[in-house]
Design a protein around this nucleic acid. Structure first.
Length: 724
RNA sequence: GCUGCUGUAGCUCAGUCGGUAGAGCGCGUCCUUGGUAAGGACGAGGUCACGGGUUCAAAUCCCGUCAGCAGCUCCA
């Protein structure tokens, strides 16, 4: 007879055929009543599942803290929602309906477009099913029989799901006591014992989603909902969603006049207004100080670069679709470029591609001489694979001096050329070139979002050129700098991801040895830094692996901030060298790193982090001097000037309002301090100090105020010892 | 880029059945010269995103474009 070990370590022998529910009942009626599932060893099972072997067992109740209970209940809610939708819209084809972090969804294929107006009807149908207190009944069928049944139902999605499922047996869940009479769904489980155990639920939104997450497949309708054990918890969650929206940097950015995105300028192009620009500048200046301390050297490079630069780096072919269109000097350059891209894309395949033929014809029309060179002396075009390289070379040769320009998508090629502009000895290394460099990427329109995803942004970029022996130390220095900027602003809720390449995926440069060394170095540096991190395949940059610092925004979306990347490829592509102690040329290793990531995204996240209430050192306006009446206006002006004279960002409010409204306005602008000055303060040379949280901090003398402000006007950690 | 939703004053929003536009906040002027979470009066401000269409008549109905929002996909 099986023996189960309970969470408290006690053991129980169960009779053959006994279920998890039976065990719960033996332990106590209260537990049996609260139970909605069970965990056997590491697997979650139905209460109705039989215990067949020795195992550890814990009963999951609605109150279980680890989220299993919520997931089970939400998965069941997804079934109930699917049944409701099928009942209301019988032509619905179900696809896939899992629980997710804050609720559940079900993907459906339905020609009629659902709208939020349909939610009420679906929810009341769900409520009816819940009130019927129908048991979830699992039954299993041998794979072949199950496939036959599914094929008869002719839902291609479920057939596909079944084909992807593992095992010889497929399971189905009936929302009712017996198969055949109630709605059912192919499903591996787990479910609550009965529909009445689904607490409070609500449908939230509807959106498109691609089948299998593949943009080339057809689009399904995804209905999102959520469920909680009680109405109260659901309401609390909905309130929390509302609260989170108040943090939204797009809203706060508007309210506090930080930035604007003007359609006339372009979507995804950020205009920094004075107050937002101040925040950004303060962050930049703070980091500039750190860069000097860490041996970085400043460089400046302009916003465009020659196309051939990006052919050499690989950016032009690899990311052509997400770049602003290139600027060509002539039609001929445009055609030759199209031809180059087409030839490059063909790879080593034999024969000309359709677009190569098209652009060759075009070239012949406008510039027969160039066409002749490509075609060769005999007039026959060299189309075979062996000549692809030759053709690419000839095209670049033809373009020399008459090419085109690209808005720079990255700063690295420019920095690489600065490195290459003079010889380097191993004694000079590492060379660390830093620039707040603005780059332009033509992001898909549906991806643009406030400051977090834009088409022009400024990276706090730097490129380090070092010897292989120096790599680990340099990586460690970069990692600690990235942590330093996060620590400085108190962003502690981040995760660290090491992005590795996917061998064989053509989006990564083919250089197995470089990848191997780079990935090993990054993992070693991350381990040495004591960071906890996850490794994810396929998340590398095309030229090398990277470590990313990832944070969530107010609605839970993840964004990459700081990044540290190892690159063995660009030095190779550009033929970079340094002279080693052996007096021979060696290839340096490159590190790309940006602790903030992009200033736009970082400030966006920071606005949400602080809810617009920036700490004193970062506040665009640090204090408002509010005069009680005209009798204290002169003193107010004098005070404002004195504070400004010490570099503090102070504004004067001498409008003909009363103190109440003046304070209200300053607080709604999240200005840290309000300095109220009336006749009394003017006479005593004091100010009445108020903070933005509503505290009146009493009257202080001017020198006390000044000392306090100057002490507070310093970024945290500024005096910390060197962290590299 | 895809699917859905949305677009009315600087901001937040109302606008019924198709009949030529409204509030609050903000802004300006004036009154008030005041003591700690919104003082009062008056006023300016609109090609109802843009372009077509239906209609005697369109903010309203239809189509297209642009932009925003949510999700998907993408993200050097």
């Amino acid at each position: 007879m099986p023996v189960v070990t309970l969470p408290d370590g006690s053991r129980r022998t169960v009779s053959p055929g006994a279920t998890a529910a039976d065990v719960a009942r033996e332990i106590g009626p209260g537990l049996a009543k609260a139970a909605i599932g069970a965990r056997v060893d590491q697997r979650i099972i139905d209460l109705s599942a039989a215990i067949t072997h020795d195992c550890s067992l814990s009963i999951i109740t609605a109150r279980s803290e680890d989220g299993d209970a919520l997931r089970i209940m939400r998965h069941s809610a997804a079934h109930v929602m699917a049944e409701a939708i099928c009942k209301l819209f019988p032509e619905t084809k179900l696809v896939y309906g899992p629980p997710v972090e804050n609720g559940f969804y079900y993907d459906i294929d339905l020609p009629r477009k659902l709208t939020p107006d349909d939610f009420r009807a679906i929810e009341s149908e769900m409520a009816r099913i819940v009130s019927e207190d129908r048991p979830f009944t699992r039954y299993e069928m041998p794979r072949e029989a199950a496939m036959k049944k599914l094929r008869a139902e002719a839902n291609p999605y479920k057939i596909d799901n079944a084909e992807r499922a593992e095992g010889d047996v497929l399971s189905f869940y009936v929302t009712g006591p017996e198969p055949g009479k109630y709605w059912e769904d192919l499903c591996m489980g787990t479910h609550v014992p009965s529909t009445s155990r689904i607490g409070a639920f609500k449908l939230l939104s509807i959106a498109g989603a691609y089948w299998h997450g593949d943009a080339s497949k057809q689009q399904l309708q995804r209905v999102y909902g959520t469920a909680f054990p009680t109405r109260k918890e659901l309401d609390a969650y909905l309130r929390q969603l509302e609260e989170a929206k108040k943090r939204d940097h797009r809203k706060i950015g508007q309210e506090l006049n930080l930035f604007v995105i003007d359609p006339l300028v372009g979507s995804g192009i950020v205009l920094w207004k004075p107050r937002g620009a101040t925040v950004r500048l303060l962050l930049e200046n703070h980091l500039r100080g750190e860069l000097v301390r860490h041996g970085y050297q400043p460089v400046f490079t302009p916003h465009i670069g020659g196309l051939d630069l990006y052919r050499t780096s690989g950016h032009f072919p690899y990311y052509r679709d997400s770049q602003f269109p290139a600027l060509f000097e002539t039609d001929r350059a445009r055609v030759l470029n199209e031809l180059w891209v087409a030839a490059d894309a063909r790879g080593d395949a034999d024969g000309l591609s359709l677009s190569e033929t098209k652009w060759l014809d075009e070239l012949r029309r406008i510039d027969e001489e160039s066409w002749n060179r490509l075609a060769g002396p005999d007039g026959a075009l060299r189309a075979d694979a062996g000549n692809r390289k030759h053709n690419l070379h000839v095209i670049r040769d033809l373009l020399a001096g008459a090419d085109g320009f690209l808005l720079k998508p990255m700063n690295c090629p420019h920095h690489v050329r600065i490195y290459a502009s003079e010889p380097h000895s191993y004694r000079d290394l590492p060379v660390r070139l830093a620039e707040f460099g603005t780059v332009y990427r033509y992001e898909q329109s549906g991806e643009l979002s406030g400051l977090t995803r834009v088409r022009g942004f400024t990276q706090d970029d730097a490129h380090l050129f070092c010897t292989p022996e120096q790599l680990l130390d340099e990586l460690s220095g970069c990692l600690s700098l990235a942590r330093f900027v996060l620590d400085t602003v108190g962003l502690s809720d981040y995760r660290v991801r090491i992005g590795l390449h996917q061998p064989g995926d053509p989006k990564f440069i083919d250089n197995p040895e470089g990848w191997r060394k780079g990935e090993a170095a990054l993992v070693a540096a991350a381990q040495a830094s004591g960071l906890s991190f996850v490794q994810e395949r396929g998340e590398a940059a095309f030229y090398g692996p990277k470590i990313d610092f990832i944070v969530k925004d107010c609605i839970g979306r993840e964004w990459q901030l700081g990044t540290v990347q190892v690159d063995y490829n660009l030095p190779e592509r550009f033929g970079l060298e340094y002279v080693g102690p052996d007096n021979r040329a060696h290839r340096p290793v490159m590190i790309h790193r940006a602790p903030f990531g992009s200033l736009e995204r970082f400030v966006g996240i920071l606005i949400e982090h602080f809810m617009g209430a920036f700490p004193f050192w970062l506040a665009p306006v640090q204090a408002v001097v509010a005069t009680v009446s005209e009798k204290s206006a002169a003193y107010g002006r004098e005070l404002t000037d004195a504070l400004r004279g010490r570099g503090l960002r102070v504004e004067l409010d001498d409008s003909s309002e009363k103190i109440g409204p003046k304070k209200h306005r300053a607080r709604s602008q999240k200005i840290p301090y309000i300095l109220v000055v009336g006749e009394q303060e003017a006479a005593n040379r004091t100010v009445n100090l108020n903070d933005r949280d509503g505290q009146n901090l009493g009257n202080v003398e001017l020198h006390t105020l000044m000392a306090r402000f100057l002490a507070e006007n310093v970024p945290p950690l500024s005096n910390a010892p060197s962290h590299s």
